[in-house]
Amino acid sequence: MNYNAMELMICCAARLLENGRTVAVGTGVPCAAAMLAQRTHAPDLVILFEAGGVAPQLPTMPISVGDSRTFHRAVMATSMADIMEACQRGMIDYTFLGGAQIDAYGNLNSTLIGNDYQKPKVRFPGSGGANDLASLCWRILVVTNHDPRRFVEKVDFLTTPGYLTGPGAREAAGLPPGTGPYRVITDLAVLGYHEQSCRMEILSLHPGVTREQVLKATGFALGVREPLELTSSPTATELRILREEVDPHRYIIGR
């Protein structure tokens, strides 16, 4: 069955979400992944939105993290602090993030490009809730396109913590122990982090993608976890649900 890179990425992300867990999502790919997971293997996955939506039954893809879809048939519509404090108490298992740049330790930049903070070359939105979610949720997932301008040796601005400078750095900074980057899903591969060095490494290659292709698209020295696996293609069921129920207007999968 034919599928595009975006559909594969959403399926990979959805499969990582275990049933009975909690996930803080934003709009777009993360939301699509959580909706797909709920409709396949994880019916009891609890979705939370940082603006205050708890366990909505999403009728359609939200446009904003705070729009009324994010608490449609939800169990609670609360405050942002209430959501973030559930994260701070250790109640939220996963979060999904993105950014303009990511480094080998999973640190993210969504603030600026350039070297003058008060007069940047390009100004991006900033942390939003990303810094908080990455500090306080157990496992951080990143979904992004794979290219060397995005996967960089050093981020221009460290907006959101990954493993910071490496092993032990999060705990030394005061971040809750046991939290941190978990997976990166790109249009080329699924990546994880080396247990000792905390540096990013390839876990599985998407069908038709070579190891060299991924290394070339990465601006830092990338490890490979052996045996290197092949990403499973989306199943017919996953694609049907994704296309018919999750994103019928192709807002995300049509990108």
């Binding site: 973030m84 701070q88 640190n107 603030t111 900033g126 942390s127 810094n131 908080d132 500090s135 306080l136 601005f157 460290l158 907006t159 959101t160 913590p161 910071l164 750095a169 999060r170 030394a172 900074a173 005061g174 971040l175 809750p176």
Partner: peptide, 10 residues
């Protein structure tokens, strides 16, 4: 106090 922001350029 909060347990966020720590260790970053933010």
């Amino acid at each position: 106090p909060a347990r966020s922001l720590l260790g970053t350029d933010s």
